[in-house]
Design a binder for these strands. Structure first.
Lengths: 113, 113
DNA sequence: CCTCGTACCTAGAGTCTCTAGGTATGCCAC
DNA sequence: GTGGCATACCTAGAGACTCTAGGTACGAGG
């Protein structure tokens, strides 16, 4: 999703990963919450199914961009896996944001919006 | 790349196709030209290799969004395949633009940019 | 009971991007 | 005349991601 120093041409690869980093850059969250919050805060413009989000979170964790930990809930409620950004995740978010800004203006220019 | 009436949540699928439609919405172009023009006009922010662009153009043609025709060049220069938008391509571009605007503000909100 | 909500998970299909080549021609320099 | 570069097209295959369609488990409410 970045790591290439040069530029980040290919936003489309792992764009959703960047969105997750953006959310987690604000506060710790768990998967189910992320799905709902993304849908809510974007009024449905971004509506990722669970089958997209859970694997994406695992990839981010595998790549060391986020760290997750289980939290047992009281009263037999399902446990949650909370994720937060690692330092490397913070860096990836920063470069990802720059890539996004560049891509956004380029695409706007091409699309004439 | 759209066709679903509801909304177009998944921009990431076929985002580059939308960029090609955007370019072709301005004037007829051929593949090699598109690669160079995209690189030039976005100052390298979008730099798609030929191996991405040629198959993408064929998909757009297969899906009826663009129409292509060969033009023989004088003096033994390589022939070119020029593409232009079909009516269906115009419609797809219009919805694609709306989807892009929605996605863009949603992503901006999430990323805080 | 049966369904809904919470919260996690997976397998597999489908699709796209990119690398790394290949074809063919013409022009220029050495 | 040969090597390299530019124009223009193409493909196969690997790799990555998204999404569908399920599954697990528990508790609360009708």
């Amino acid at each position: 999703m970045s790591a290439q120093p040069g530029s980040g041409p290919q936003l489309s690869r792992g764009e959703f990963g960047l969105l997750l980093l953006g959310l987690l850059g604000r506060c710790e969250m768990y998967g189910y919450e992320i799905v709902a919050e993304l849908r809510r805060s974007t009024e449905g413009a971004i509506d990722l199914p669970e089958g997209t989000v859970y694997p994406a979170l695992r990839r981010l964790e595998r790549d060391g961009l986020v760290g997750g930990h289980w939290v047992e809930m009281a009263g037999g409620a399902p446990r949650r896996r909370y994720y937060r950004l690692t330092q490397e995740g913070e860096r990836a978010l920063a470069t990802g944001r720059e890539d996004w800004l560049r891509f956004k203006s380029a695409a706007d220019a091409v699309l004439g919006s």
